[in-house]
Every structure is written in structure tokens, then in C-alpha cells.
Simulated assay, not measured.
Amino acid sequence: MRLATFNILHARSLGDGQVDLDRFTAAVRDLDADVLALQEVDRDQPRSHGADLTVLAAEAMGAPEHRFAAVLHGEPGLWTAATGDHQPATASYGIALLSRHPVREWRVLKLPVLRRRAPVMWPGNRWPALVSDEPRAALAAVVQGPQGDVTVVATHLTFIPGWSTRQLRTLVSHVSGLPRPLVLMGDLNIGGDRPARVSGMRALATAATFPVSHPLRQLDHILADGPVEPVGAARAIDTGLSDHRALVVDVTY
């Protein structure tokens, strides 16, 4: 089974600054993933031509099972937190999980978020900037894969240092009762081998994913708890869009 995680930057390319939906669907199709986690996903946003990027990705990869979890609704500059069942009727932004295989159960999991502004040092700045975070969530699916059931969890953690590890520990606690084997994947905003150490899980994929043109850090991860093993080396793929590379690994379990 092929697993992939991809922070899509709402399908925008850094090369030309444009959102090209045909380019996006071709990139998803070329990943050829059986289960795909997406982050920074738009639905009904003018900047991405009003498209439902989750549905477009599902059609491109042939995934009858898919879910979108909104963490924000409204348009950029006027964001507010999503409420209710995480599927607001207005324009929204969040994460998605897609599967070619049947899904027995879906869950949306809320993660803690820092309610005050925090100092973050951006590359090239002399001084830290005070920033506010957005709500964070995870999507969990019990997938009926070709070798039996496997739980897959997709998330996008905060960029605020310290809080990303707190969110990861909380997420591990939230999924402790879900069936094993379990795979957790997404943009964790934590570099290197630290996600494996914090979560107590094993890394299935080791490859630098950020920044896209000359990746120096691995912010995107695929972790496992239980009998899941990689088949061959993982790949970090420049799809021609986003500021991240997609991370892909084939597994057996």
C-alpha cells in the first residue's frame, strides 16, 4: 500500500504564483497513493477558483473514500474558527484524508491551540514576530486495506515551537484506543527524528521535504505504531506546486 502526505499550499506553485487546478490534479495522480493526507486545503475559496480541492484530489487518484476537516472558515484576512461538525457551509480551509480502500470508521480530533500571540523567528528576520496560531485538528480513518485493517491519522501541527510537540503528544493520547497497526502522517512542523522520539512511534519515511526547491529539513512525516514496515526507500517529490515536497512510501503490514 502506498502512503503519501502533502502540504499543498492551496495548490499554489511558487514558480509562477498561480493556482492551476489541472496541475494540481496531475500532481495528485502522479503520486499514485492508496491513502493520501493533504494539508492547507481550500474549499470554495476565490484564490483556488472556488474549487473543492479534496474532491478534485479524490477524483484524480480514484479515492471513493475522503473527508475534509475545516479548521477555518471564511476567506483569508477574515478567517474565523470552524465550528460544529468541522464542515461549515461557507468557504473553508483545513486538512483532508483520502483512501482508495474502504473505510470502516472516521473520526475528527481537535488539538490544543495557543490562545495568545507567541514570538516566532522567521528566516531572514533579526527579531521574532508575534503571531497567532490557527485551530488544529486531525482526521483518523480505519482503512480496510489489502492486508487487513490499518488506522491512518492525518494532521497539520502548529509552526509555534513547543506547541507542536504538545499537540503531537495530545494526538498520540487521542488515538491510543484506535486499532493497530496505526500510521500517523502530515506536516508536523517538527524537524528530523524528533517526531518519532516525542510520539514513541517509528519513522517509515526519512527524506528532507522543505523548502521545495532545495530541501534542507524534514517537516513532513510518516510514523507507525505496530507491525507496519516500509518497502524500499521513501521519496520526497517536487510536484511543481507548494513550498513543500510530497512524502511517499510504500508499506507492508
Rank of each mutant, 00 (worst) to 15 (best):
D16I: 12
D16A: 13
G17N: 04
G17K: 06
G17I: 11
G17M: 09
V19M: 03
D20A: 14
D20Q: 14
L21I: 08
L21Y: 15
L21S: 09
L21W: 14
D22Q: 13
D22P: 02
R23T: 00
R23M: 08
R23E: 03
R23D: 02
T25A: 07
T25K: 00
A26V: 11
A26C: 05
A27R: 04
A27Q: 06
A27Y: 02
A27W: 00
V28C: 15
V28D: 01
R29T: 08
R29Y: 03
D30N: 15
L31A: 10
L31E: 05
D32I: 02
D32A: 15
D32R: 11
D34M: 08
D34G: 13
L36Q: 02
A37K: 03
A37W: 03
A37L: 05
A37C: 14
A37R: 03
E40Y: 09
E40Q: 12
E40K: 02
E40H: 04
V41E: 05
V41H: 08
D42L: 04
R43Y: 07
D44H: 15
Q45A: 07
Q45Y: 00
P46K: 09
P46V: 07
R47M: 13
R47C: 10
H49T: 07
H49I: 03
G50P: 09
L53D: 02
L53R: 09
L53P: 05
L53V: 06
T54Y: 07
V55W: 00
V55D: 00
V55S: 05
V55G: 02
V55A: 15
L56D: 05
A57T: 02
A57Q: 06
A58V: 10
E59S: 11
M61P: 08
M61I: 15
M61F: 11
M61Y: 00
G62N: 13
G62Q: 13
G62K: 12
A63W: 09
A63C: 12
A63I: 12
P64C: 11
H66F: 15
H66V: 04
H66W: 14
R67G: 01
F68S: 05
F68N: 08
F68E: 03
F68T: 05
A70N: 05
A70L: 01
A70P: 02
V71G: 05
V71L: 14
L72H: 04
E75F: 05
E75L: 15
P76E: 12
P76G: 11
G77N: 13
G77I: 14
W79Q: 10
W79S: 10
W79C: 12
T80S: 15
T80I: 04
A81K: 12
A82C: 12
G84R: 00
D85K: 04
D85F: 00
H86M: 00
Q87L: 09
P88F: 02
A89D: 15
T90C: 03
A91D: 06
Y93D: 02
I95A: 01
I95C: 06
I95M: 08
A96W: 01
L97K: 03
S99N: 10
S99Y: 01
S99K: 07
S99T: 08
